[in-house]
Simulated scan of single mutants.
Amino acid sequence: MTPPPAHPVLLAWAGLVMGPAALLANTQLGLTLPYAECGASLRPGPFLSGAAVLLSLLGAWLSWRASGLRRSGAGMPGFIGSLGALTGLIIAFALLLQSLATLVISACAR
């Protein structure tokens, strides 16, 4: 059995921080990259969007683990961990839809 992490309260906030940060970065890159992708043969947009989805899912997983570690004590860290996990999953779904849009719509049409 692995020992609990040193700061489960900080890990509970991972989904609430990593998910929106990934969404923010993906949105900004989605606004600036089409100009560079239009004439180029390499399209980094779908790969960067996929990395943002994975980052958001990682934050959701960390929050879920932190809420499970503190569930016996309940209270605010368990709630923040559950809320962070749910937020990370919802944002990961939105990022997945954005990454699918980068595959369907060409960069010149954006």
Rank of each mutant, 00 (worst) to 15 (best):
Phe47Val: 15
Phe47Leu: 14
Leu48Gln: 04
Leu48Asp: 12
Leu48Met: 05
Ser49Gly: 11
Ser49Glu: 06
Gly50Trp: 00
Ala51Gly: 14
Ala51Leu: 14
Ala51His: 10
Ala51Tyr: 15
Ala52Leu: 10
Ala52Thr: 08
Ala52Trp: 15
Val53Phe: 01
Leu54Val: 15
Leu55Cys: 11
Ser56Thr: 13
Ser56Asn: 13
Leu58Phe: 11
Leu58Ile: 12
Ala60Phe: 13
Ala60Lys: 06
Trp61Gly: 09
Trp61Gln: 06
Trp61Pro: 05
Trp61Ala: 11
Ser63Ile: 06
Arg65Met: 07
Ala66Asn: 13
Ser67Val: 01
Ser67Thr: 00
Leu69Ser: 06
Arg70Asn: 04
Arg71Lys: 14
Arg71Ala: 13
Gly73Met: 01
Ala74Ile: 03
Gly75Pro: 00
Pro77Asn: 05
Pro77Gly: 09
Gly78Glu: 01
Gly78Arg: 03
Phe79Arg: 07
Gly81Phe: 06
Gly81Pro: 09
Ser82Lys: 14
Ser82Ala: 14
Leu83Phe: 00
Leu83Tyr: 03
Gly84Gln: 12
Gly84Trp: 09
Gly84Thr: 12
Gly84His: 12
Ala85Thr: 03
Leu86Trp: 05
Thr87His: 07
Thr87Tyr: 02
Thr87Phe: 05
Leu89Ser: 03
Leu89Asn: 03
Leu89Phe: 04
Ile90Arg: 05
Ile90Ser: 12
Ile90Met: 13
Ile91Gly: 01
Ile91His: 08
Phe93Gln: 00
Phe93Val: 14
Phe93His: 10
Phe93Glu: 04
Ala94Ser: 13
Leu96Gln: 11
Leu96His: 06
Ser99Lys: 04
Ser99Ile: 04
Thr102Asn: 02
Leu103Trp: 12
Leu103Thr: 02
Val104Asn: 15
Val104Tyr: 15
Val104Arg: 15
Ser106Gln: 06
Ser106Met: 10
Ser106Pro: 12
Ala107Met: 02
Ala107Asn: 07
Ala107Cys: 09
